[in-house]
Amino acid sequence: MRRASWFNITSLTLGFAFLYLPMVLLVFYSFNSSKLVTVWAGFSTKWYGELIRNEAFLDAAVVTLKVAVISSTLATILGTMAAYVLVRGGKFMGRTLFSGMVYAPLVMPEVITGLSLLLLFIGIGLDRGVLTIVLAHTTFSMCYVSVVVSSRLVTFDRSLEEAALDLGCSPFDAFRLVTLPIIAPAVISGWLLAFTLSLDDLVIASFTTGPSSTTLPIKIWSAVRLGVSPEINALSTIMIGVVTVGVIAASLISKHRTVKAQHDLQAAERGTS
């Protein structure tokens, strides 16, 4: 049995304080009634009201969500295909280039990805706007999706697909009826990852956006360059809140599933001895 030593407890406490205190303070000061964010002047929710009435932010939020939903869906489809090709595709011409292109965007600095895409869009004369951001986001987030999905596919028991073929499935049916339902959790987390990456992206969006389509991070960026503002604190609090609720709910669901599976297994072993 492991026991927590004082050293370990201290390092964990300090470490997590470092990770979480800035965000806690941010949330705390979003309820500050003073315009001066670092001076506490009493509880108030007025900045949330201001935020809701700020149409520029609302418009940006709509654009951001639209881009995120479309690009993460496209990225999930393309990324899952790419993962399947990498893990199960066998040999084909240009395989090395393909796997290089799948993994390179993960380590490519955002400024370079953004710059290169902008030059392409200008080169082919594509007007910059929602479409170009979607294309850019799909490209880099499909690589993340494909990493998530392929790590699941690698551990996937290949005999399940073989069993499906053996029982009369065509290769496509085997994927549709057996592989996809089993790897679905990985595909869903890939989608969520792509979605948050898109929501979060500032640099690539700055390069590929046009004047008519400002995303939320770009909006936040131009606001925070001028310093701390309570409105941004309120917006951050909402975003942090949504993520926290989502992640906690997801982990509770998965914990519940694991516990249930263990319970079922024990019941099964008992019932047959």
Binding site: L26, D200, S236, M239, V243, T244
Partner: peptide, 23 residues
């Protein structure tokens, strides 16, 4: 979960949080 949670939170916001602390 506590280590992973910041991954899902906006990068920009996490950097911004320090502005109010360090100024």
């Amino acid at each position: 979960m506590l280590v992973i949670l910041p991954f899902w939170t906006s990068f920009l916001i996490r950097v911004y949080a320090w502005v109010g602390i360090l100024s």
